[in-house]
Design a protein around this nucleic acid. Structure first.
Length: 431
RNA sequence: UCCUCAGUAGCUCAAUGGUAGAGCAACCGGCUGUUAACCGGUAGGCUGCAGGUUCGAGUCCUGCCUGGGGAGCCA
């Protein structure tokens, strides 16, 4: 008997097959039962008729509970009455393990309850769709980077000091010395870019901030490309191409998942063929002041500011040329205007906020030393980083993509916690 | 840290200061095409915790705890 995955069930119409999975839902009538079975790759409606399987099998099936694991044998048929297009006319089944009192019903649940049961919540169709899209987003980014000459370089997770020195770090004990969980692999990528030219890292990052909004996670995944001999404008060109490639790949391969998520794809479909808007920080401030926002030159954007800027554009928008004092120490100043830096944030449309932050890096040793002092950073911890400027410094640029924000935008999620399998949130580390 | 909302059955929610209820899930029964099936029945509660006001508190007051949404910060 052929053991078949549900994603391939269409190739077995007319055949007797065996499937293995879990009971998603069960409806019964006096002499006919409907068993909705999922196996991780798809769903199918199993139909069991009392006259076909006999009294004993039929009554055993009556007592099946939600999420009981099963091996089911039957005849595959096309049928429009099934929501999945195919049906299995069940001839027999075996219980692998009976589930007791499954907590997640098909009705609505609250956020707190679902997060406490994330390990089971994952089984629901919506969450499965998100995880599949997430997987493909990661693959698409890797594919594009690989095709464009980038080499994957893994950055360390345990680090001796703050990479950027600003945000709060998770402290841990490193054989009697203080160590910190990485909040960025960027500085290490700069070293790697001097070795291999074009590199990137992809790993978890940790921010011990008391952030409690839909746009924040304590632990999230970031992709950080870094490129030697690439300057500010080309940096943005590369980001734009990468984002367009990812969107087009997901639209091509995940129509069904996006439909399951009830994602309106009409706005996404325009992205690959459009030119991303680029505005300067100066223009952004003027625009926001015209709109009545309480902001002046030199201020950083708040969430409502970002939303206003993004909603004024149909697609993603780059904001470039930020005041130096609100940005990180390693960013290169503009040649004619030393008060601003060659940095750009990419804001996603539809209120999803900043998905990429990038900049050209400061390649001048003396200026970098000065910035480290200004930011009151321990110079000794950055000696290796300063070496990159001592031994053949070159212009270079890079950026960081927040994976979960990209997933949330593409899937149309209203909270980042659904964009990662096991979210770490403020005061929540279970399960 | 601040602002704001909430906490009642396993889950989602009701209940003018006056005997704590429904739907779903569980269990029992009915139904040959169900689509979060439907119909009938059974069981299920120290109303987040601690005080207070009151003849009487799920409801009003105070404090605490837990969680949601937002701000700041960021990807």
């Amino acid at each position: 008997m052929a053991k078949v995955l549900l994603k391939d069930i269409g190739q077995h119409v007319g055949q007797e097959v065996t499937i293995r999975g879990w009971l998603y839902n069960h409806r019964s009538s006096g002499k006919i039962q409907f068993l909705i079975i999922r196996d991780g790759t798809g769903f199918i409606q199993g139909v069991m008729v009392k006259n076909d399987v006999g009294e004993e099998v039929f009554s055993l099936a009556q007592g099946l509970t939600q999420e009981t694991s099963l091996e089911v044998t039957g005849h595959v048929k096309e049928d429009d009455r099934s929501p999945w297009g195919y049906e299995l006319a069940i001839s027999g089944f075996e219980i692998i393990a009976r589930a007791e009192d499954y907590p997640i019903s098909l009705k609505e649940h609250g956020v707190d309850f679902l997060l406490d049961h994330r390990h089971l919540w994952m089984r629901t169709p919506r969450q499965v769709a998100i995880m599949r899209v997430r997987d493909s987003i990661i693959r698409a980014i890797r594919q594009w980077l690989h095709d464009n000459g980038f080499c994957l370089i893994d950055a360390p997770i345990l680090t001796p000091a703050a990479c950027e020195g600003t945000t709060t770090l998770f402290e841990t004990d490193y054989f009697g010395e203080k160590a910190y969980l990485s909040q960025s692999g960027q500085l290490y990528m700069e070293a790697a870019a001097m070795a291999l030219g074009r590199v990137y890292c992809f790993g978890p990052t940790f921010r011990a901030e008391k952030s409690k909004t839909r746009r924040h996670l304590i632990e999230f995944w970031m992709m950080e490309p870094e490129m030697a001999f690439v300057e500010h404008d080309e940096n943005m060109d590369i980001q734009e191409e990468l984002v367009k490639y990812v969107i087009s790949q997901i639209l091509e391969h995940h129509k069904q998942d996006l439909a399951a998520l009830e994602r309106d794809v009409s706005r996404l479909e325009k992205i690959p063929n459009m030119k991303f808007a680029r505005i300067t920080y100066d223009e952004a401030i003027d625009f926001l002041r015209e709109k009545g926002h309480d902001i002046k030159w030199g201020d950083d954007f708040g969430a409502p500011d970002e939303t206003a800027l993004a909603s004024h554009h149909e697609g993603p928008v780059f904001v470039e040329g930020f005041p130096a004092h609100i940005k990180a120490f390693y960013m290169k100043p503009h040649a004619d205007r030393p008060d601003i830096v060659l940095a750009a944030d990419l804001l996603a449309p539809e209120g999803y906020g900043e998905i990429i932050g990038g900049s050209q890096r400061l390649d001048d040793l003396d200026l970098l030393l000065k910035r480290i002092k200004e930011h009151k950073l321990p110079q000794q911890a950055f000696e290796w980083y300063l070496d990159l400027r001592r031994y053949g410094s070159v212009p270079h640029s890079g950026f960081g993509i927040g994976l979960e924000r990209l997933v949330a935008w593409i899937c149309g999620l209203d909270h980042l916690r659904e964009a990662i399998p096991f979210p770490r949130l403020l005061n929540r580390i279970y399960p």
